[in-house]
Structures are given as structure tokens and as C-alpha cells.
Design a protein around this nucleic acid. Structure first.
Lengths: 213, 213
DNA sequence: AATTGTATAATTGTATACAATGGAAGGAAG
DNA sequence: CTTCCTTCCATTGTATACAATTATACAATT
């Protein structure tokens, strides 16, 4: 999935997005086009396009003196999980009804990869596979609205600092939960898929926030 | 609100977005950068930025031969309302708790304007004011995540063909519902705000889809 | 000391030139 | 008639030049 050659603009976008979500850029920092150009070694055109996209995601705010970093807070991540809790289960429900056999196979592949990388303790790859699993699920709902909305929320939450699958314990239970979702979808049991997805999001949220406050 | 001078790129973005959502561009249509340049009389730079934003919203898909219009279907609108139904009430709940007095005043102004334009039967202005009312509410939640997510969904739904407030009957009841939401927020009654918001979304959805199927 | 005006420098906004890519058309070979 | 290859052209990708805007510093004036 997503194996197509990406443009510089997309690379710049993802790079800055990651830097903002990971905390490399702090809220209030000002980033300028020319600064990024010399940092990244590209011209202003792709940088501008990237900034426009970031602005649309409300990760930055463009001003006449440069782009001000808005960033993401713990509260934002909590909101993201609250929203996912409400709608991700519906997406799973739809996916169980609408996914093609081809897509279900793709989902299964991610499950195997997840297991493989869990064995190898490769946290970065696991995060990648986790994203793919969820994106396939979202797209499989057959609804571009659910896909779009959830993809964005999931990506933000995952890139934020150390996301759930970077934790070893969580990685194992996450795998179990993914399998439960997969099984429900593969057997076209929509209600069960819905319940499994809800459990999954709930546990991920719990894991992230349990140590805080 | 939003009175700042907008760049060409933003204007192009909004223009194309409206054209896609209103049906002027059909699903499958191919739009090229140069085509837009000559149509709109601007250079490729702002057009490209606009296309990138549209692509991020999944309204188009960029290919090597131009951007393919994806567009919005009735099912998409239905999904949008289903999602709003689940989370907009939470945003209202938060707004009742977090909105500043200043913001509440802004909200009230939109209520008065709504009434005024309803009297003048100016449907376009009413749509505008409706957007503003909701955006103030979303932002008033204090959560950029709710704001961002809902703003996008609301805009898509509203620009889609003839949205609810373009209907005269609906305009009146919509005003009543807005007032109920406002009253609840102004009196800091979060539960009531939540319920009022849910009713509002439910009625809007009902109105749009009641004649179909 | 405060304020206003002006010049300057930094930054974004836009246009255009050039490079790279990918698909379509057309022809040659089987 | 089909398939494969080559060539060409439309389109996007990138870089850069130029215009417009805006903030800042500083001086002049009150």
C-alpha cells in the first residue's frame, strides 16, 4: 500500500508533520519557507505546498512573518481518541459488510507482518503496519468520509510522541485485538467487528493515558 | 470572522471545492492545472496549492494525466451526518463548558443575523451565517480536533447542492434549534447543549433525506 | 517621553522557465 | 490481428525570478 513514488512536496509535508507531532518543533515556533528550503535542500515550491497542507490540518498557522507552529497537546490526543471511540466502531461495522475479499486478504497480510515484526521487536515497522491495518479497515468501510476522517485522526495520534505500539506490552495485546477485528470481518460479522474495534480503541486510549495525571 | 484578505490559492481552492460539491464538476472529470490557469486567469503556483489541498480532502485524486474528480455522493452526505450525529453533541457539551463570554456574544450575533436574513429570505446569507454559527460553536469547544473535524464535515455537507437552510421551512426550525443551543450554552448547561445539538443535527439530516429512496 | 513617519529588510505571493515523467499513438515484427 | 517497441506530446514536478506586503528599526517632531 502507498508504494507509489511520492513527490518532494509530500515528503516535505510528512517530514514537517512528523517534526511537529513528535515535538521537534514546539508550539509557537516560527518556521519560514526559506529556512525550510535551506534545511531540506529543496526549492520553495514544494515547501509552500507542504505548508498549505499543514495549515489545512491546523498544525501550523500561516502569518506574514512565517508559519507559527500550533502543534498537538495531550488534550488533543485525548480528543482524538474520544472521537475515534465514537466512530471507528461504525467504520468496522461497515467494513465487515462492504470489504472485498481482496481487501480482507490485504488485512490478513498486515496481521502476519504485525506478528513478524513483533517477533523481531521492530517497533518502527510495527507502527507502519499498524497504520496500514487501520487504513485498509477505514477504506474497506466503503465510505470515503469515514476513511478520510479516521485516517487523519489515527495518523495524528500515532505520530504523537511514542504511540501505543512502540510499547512492547501494548504491541502484543494490540496484535490480539487486530486479530479479533480481522476474524469478525472475515466472517462478515458486523456486530462483532464493531465491538472488537471499540475494545481496541478503548484499550489503546487507556494504555496511552493510564500513566498520566 | 474570517475577514482577512485571502490569497489567490485560497480563492482557487474554494472555487474548485464549490464547483465539485455543487456538481459543476462530475465524478470522473479530469481537471488539469493549465486548464484551470486559463479558466481562472492565474498562474500554476496558486492552482497547484489549491489542488494539493483538494487532494488532501479527497475531493480529487492527482494522477500523471491530471486530477480526477472524486466528488461527493448522497451516501457521503449521509455518512457525514452520521458522524456529526455522534460527535457534534460532544462539541456542544464542551462549548457550554469552555466558551468565553466573548465567543458567546459572537454566537448571539449570528443568531440575530440568522433571524434578519430569514426575514429577508436571503438564503445565501443564511447559509453563510449558519456556517459561522457552527464554526464558532466548534471552535468554542476549546478543542482544535473537534473544531477541525466538524468544520470540514459541516462545510462539505452544506456546500453539497441545496443544503438544508436553502429550504424555507427548514430555515425557520433551524433558527429555533440554533436558539436552543445558544440558550443552553449561554446558561452553561452542558447537558442541555448536548441534547439541543443532537436534535439539531438529527433534524437537519431528516430534512435532507426524507424525500429520498 | 511618546508618537508618528519613513526607510529598509525580511517574508510571503505570484508568474514563468525548464526538467522529468508517463501515457497515447503509430508503426514494425510476429 | 495482436503484441511489442519507440517516439512524441501533454502534464506534472521543481526551481527561480520578480512583485507585493508587512514588520521593524530608527529618526524626527511634538
Amino acid at each position: 500500500m502507498d508504494h507509489k513514488q511520492v513527490s518532494l512536496a509530500m515528503q516535505v509535508f510528512e517530514r514537517i508533520e512528523t517534526d511537529i507531532l513528535s515535538g521537534a518543533y514546539q508550539r509557537g515556533d516560527i518556521i519560514t519557507e526559506l529556512g525550510l528550503c535551506s534545511d531540506l535542500g529543496v526549492s520553495r515550491t514544494p515547501v509552500r505546498e507542504a505548508l498549505r497542507m499543514l495549515s489545512q490540518e491546523d498544525l501550523i498557522e500561516e502569518t506574514s512573518r512565517g508559519a507559527v507552529v500550533i502543534g498537538v497537546t495531550n488534550e488533543d490526543i485525548q480528543d482524538i481518541f474520544n472521537i475515534r471511540l465514537k466512530i471507528e466502531s461504525d467504520a468496522a461495522y461497515l467494513a465487515a459488510k462492504n470489504m472485498s475479499e481482496e481487501e480482507i486478504k490485504e488485512l490478513y497480510e498486515r496481521l502476519e507482518l504485525h506478528e513478524f515484526y513483533a517477533m523481531k521487536k521492530d517497533a518502527d515497522r510495527m507502527k507502519e503496519v499498524d497504520s496500514e491495518f487501520h487504513n485498509i479497515l477505514y477504506r474497506g468501510s466503503g465510505s470515503i468520509t469515514y476513511y478520510n476522517t479516521l485516517k487523519l485522526l489515527h495518523r495524528k495520534a500515532q505520530r504523537y510522541r511514542k504511540a501505543s505500539v512502540s510499547d512492547k506490552d501494548r504491541a502484543i495485546s494490540s496484535l490480539k485485538e487486530h486479530r479479533a477485528i480481522y476474524e469478525a470481518i472475515a466472517s462478515r460479522n458486523a456486530e462483532e467487528a464493531k465491538a472488537a474495534a471499540e475494545t481496541h480503541v478503548k484499550n489503546a486510549a487507556y494504555k496511552i493515558f493510564k500513566g498520566e495525571k
